[in-house]
């Protein structure tokens, strides 16, 4: 077995553009699902009953349906329903946000519920209103407590962008497939892709861990 990695070096720009799209899609869908997840979580915790039931149904459904299915449906089926065509990147963004927001919402909810009830009592005793308590006392602590889970969700987000290759988003996985197909050197290309993903993902989880170690005391009541 001899390997010739020149296929990778010759086409590094092609692959690098894939890495760029991977990072862009990860960051943007990470942000949109964070915001959407926060909204969904607040609706679930503080919203009126019928809305809460709908939200719970949505969250549990995303735990049942694979990301691949959501992405494919967003790209192929949604345009039929709405009449709008979306470029692959946008469809991937929509699909990923819808799927990940459910998980983000659960992380937010768990974080908020994990804050000790005594904190609420102490804040009430000072004369704070419920809204002030959530904003100034509960959320700051809850956000610290959510960090490890969000770090893990970020890692999942980056891995899920690779599935967007199935709907022809030119991220790293897709670029690798194309290059592997054209060059007939799948092993070298895919091995390289594995290394790149590892190099991106490993620091993300480690970095979140390290950051959390330093700020954990701010969430410990």
């Amino acid at each position: 077995m001899d390997f010739d990695f020149s296929v990778v070096t010759d086409h590094w720009r092609f692959l690098a553009s894939g890495v760029g799209i991977t990072l862009l899609l990860s960051v943007v869908s990470g942000l949109t699902s964070l915001v959407a997840g926060l909204v969904v979580a607040l609706l679930r915790l503080y919203g009126p009953r019928p809305l809460r039931l709908v939200v719970v149904l949505y969250i549990d459904s995303m735990r049942a349906i694979p990301v691949l299915v959501v992405l494919v449906w967003s790209f192929f089926a949604l345009p039929i329903l709405t009449g709008l065509t979306m470029p692959p990147f946008v469809a991937a963004l929509v699909g990923l946000t819808v799927h990940l927001a459910a998980y983000a919402a659960e992380i937010v909810r768990a974080g908020i519920e994990s804050v000790r009830p005594g904190q609420t009592r102490a804040a009430l005793a000072l004369g704070m209103s419920r809204a002030q308590i959530v904003r100034r006392i509960i959320l700051p602590q809850a956000i610290v407590r959510m960090l490890p889970a969000f770090g893990s969700l970020l890692s999942i987000t980056i891995k899920d962008t690779a599935i967007a290759s199935v709907i022809a988003v030119p991220e790293l996985m897709r670029q690798s497939e194309t290059l592997a197909g054209q060059s007939f050197q799948p092993i070298e290309v895919y091995t390289f892709a594995m290394l790149v993903y590892f190099v991106i993902l490993f620091p993300v989880t480690r970095g979140v861990d390290m950051f959390y170690q330093r700020v954990a005391h701010l969430g410990r009541s």
Partner: peptide
């Protein structure tokens, strides 16, 4: 009424067994 109660609470101070300082 919660709002009137809040005003009353500002004139009482409470200290808890578990301190309940805000950790952040």
């Amino acid at each position: 009424d919660e709002r009137a109660l809040r005003a009353v609470r500002t004139r009482m101070g409470m200290v808890f067994q578990s301190f309940e300082l805000f950790p952040h």
